[in-house]
Amino acid sequence: MNTEAIARRLVELCRQGKYEQAQDELYADDAVSIEMDGLPPDMARDTRGLEAIREKGRQFNATIEAMHGGSVGDPIVTGNWFSLVMTMDATFKGRGRVDMREICVYQVRDGKIVREQFFYDVD
Results as ranks from 00 to 15, higher is better:
Met1Asp: 11
Glu4Cys: 08
Ala5Glu: 14
Ala7His: 01
Arg8Asn: 15
Arg9Asn: 01
Arg9Glu: 10
Leu13Gln: 12
Leu13Arg: 14
Cys14His: 13
Arg15Lys: 14
Arg15Tyr: 11
Arg15Leu: 11
Gln16Phe: 03
Gly17Met: 04
Gly17Glu: 12
Tyr19Glu: 12
Gln21Asp: 08
Gln23Asn: 08
Asp24Ala: 14
Glu25Ile: 01
Glu25Trp: 03
Tyr27Gln: 06
Ala28Val: 00
Ala28Ile: 00
Ala28Ser: 15
Asp29Ile: 00
Asp30Gly: 10
Asp30Lys: 09
Ala31Trp: 02
Val32Arg: 10
Val32Glu: 07
Val32Phe: 04
Ser33Pro: 02
Ser33Leu: 13
Glu35Asn: 13
Gly38Asn: 02
Gly38Trp: 05
Pro40Trp: 08
Pro40Ser: 08
Pro40Gln: 09
Pro41Cys: 00
Asp42Thr: 06
Ala44Ile: 09
Arg45Lys: 15
Arg45Trp: 05
Asp46Lys: 00
Asp46Cys: 01
Asp46Trp: 02
Arg48Pro: 00
Leu50Pro: 03
Glu51Val: 03
Ala52Leu: 07
Ala52Arg: 11
Glu55Lys: 09
Lys56Phe: 01
Lys56Thr: 05
Arg58Gln: 13
Arg58His: 13
Gln59Lys: 09
Ala62His: 04
Ala62Tyr: 01
Thr63Tyr: 03
Met67Lys: 14
Gly69Asn: 11
Ser71Met: 05
Ile76Gly: 07
Val77Cys: 12
Thr78Leu: 10
Thr78Val: 13
Thr78Arg: 10
Ser83Asn: 04
Ser83Lys: 00
Met86Ile: 05
Thr87Ala: 02
Thr87Leu: 03
Asp89Trp: 06
Asp89Tyr: 02
Asp89Phe: 05
Ala90Val: 13
Lys93Phe: 11
Gly94Leu: 13
Arg95Glu: 14
Gly96Ala: 05
Gly96Tyr: 01
Arg97Ala: 02
Val98Met: 09
Asp99Gly: 01
Asp99Phe: 03
Arg101Asp: 03
Ile103His: 13
Cys104Gly: 06
Cys104Asn: 09
Tyr106Asn: 00
Asp110Glu: 09
Asp110Leu: 00
Val114Leu: 09
Val114Cys: 08
Val114Asn: 05
Val114Arg: 03
Arg115Glu: 14
Arg115His: 11
Arg115Leu: 15
Glu116Gln: 15
Tyr120Lys: 08
Val122Arg: 13
Val122Phe: 12
Val122Met: 11
Asp123Ile: 00
